[in-house]
């Protein structure tokens, strides 16, 4: 396992930014376009992680096809990484024993020993307007993920219900099932559709779960009526 990357998360939770301190020849993979500023000794290389096939897989995951690899050349340097949406950033250290499931737009940065796979959810996310596409993160090393709004960590032991639009990440020791709130009966279907309570994800087992305090889909629904109306 490569040595840990020194980091600091600043301006949390509303405008979190990730400041990485790369040692000479140390590398990190960052979401394409998320680099904000860096020392000039850092070299940037765009790449399709895990080969073209997996890159296309990631495209379906709602994640951009390309990630960028940053390497400090000859000396150490600072790299500032900013997610596209204002919110929080959390660090997770993968030790190879368990993997992490991350909401598709939540990827910020990862150490070279970390593998990212988009896992097409297919039927599981089929009914949700807000599709639940998840990245499966495995391997060993540092990983950072981001949210819209603040992040709340919930240690699940037993079962828990989360509105699908508020999921940030969870450990894969948890079982999950996307469903209409309280089961699919007509009455509850009514609650779900008219109630604005979209699909929920039912977690069971024991493991950590991270949720965010704002929902991108709700935000977009707020903006939508302000769009100009087609005149024809």
């Amino acid at each position: 396992m490569s040595s840990a990357i020194a980091y600091k998360i600043e301006h949390s939770p509303a405008y979190a930014s990730l400041k990485l301190n790369l040692k000479p020849e140390q590398s990190v993979t960052v979401e394409a376009g998320a680099m904000a500023a860096m020392d000039s000794c850092i070299d940037m290389k765009s790449k399709v992680k895990g080969g073209l096939g997996k890159g296309i897989g990631r495209m379906f995951g709602g994640e951009s096809l390309f990630t960028s690899e940053f390497t400090a050349k000859g000396q150490s340097g600072y790299l500032y990484v900013s997610p596209g949406v204002p919110g929080d950033i959390k660090h997770y250290a993968l030790d190879g024993s368990r993997s992490l499931m991350v909401q598709s737009s939540g990827f910020v940065a990862a150490a070279p020993g970390v593998m990212i796979d988009s896992k097409f959810q297919g039927f599981k996310g089929f009914f949700s307007g807000e599709s639940l596409f998840l990245l499966k993160v495995t391997g060993e090393g540092d990983f950072w993920f981001s949210s819209f709004g603040a992040i709340i960590e919930i240690p699940v032991d037993g079962s828990y219900v989360v509105d699908t639009g508020y999921i940030v990440a969870f450990e894969d020791t948890l079982n999950y099932k996307v469903e209409v709130l309280n089961g699919l009966s007509f009455k509850n279907l009514k609650t779900s559709i008219f109630g604005g309570e979209g699909l929920v994800t039912h977690f069971s087992g024991s493991g950590k779960l991270w949720i965010q305090t704002r929902n991108v889909a709700s935000f977009v629904r707020f903006i939508h009526p302000f769009r100009p109306v087609k005149s024809n």
Binding site: I154, V161, V162, T191, G195, H202, T213
Partner: peptide
């Protein structure tokens, strides 16, 4: 309606207009 982020699974929900 729509304000719920997450909750214990034992909570019962109903919606009225």
């Amino acid at each position: 309606a729509g304000a719920m982020v997450a909750m214990s699974s034992s909570i019962d929900v109903s919606t009225t207009l």
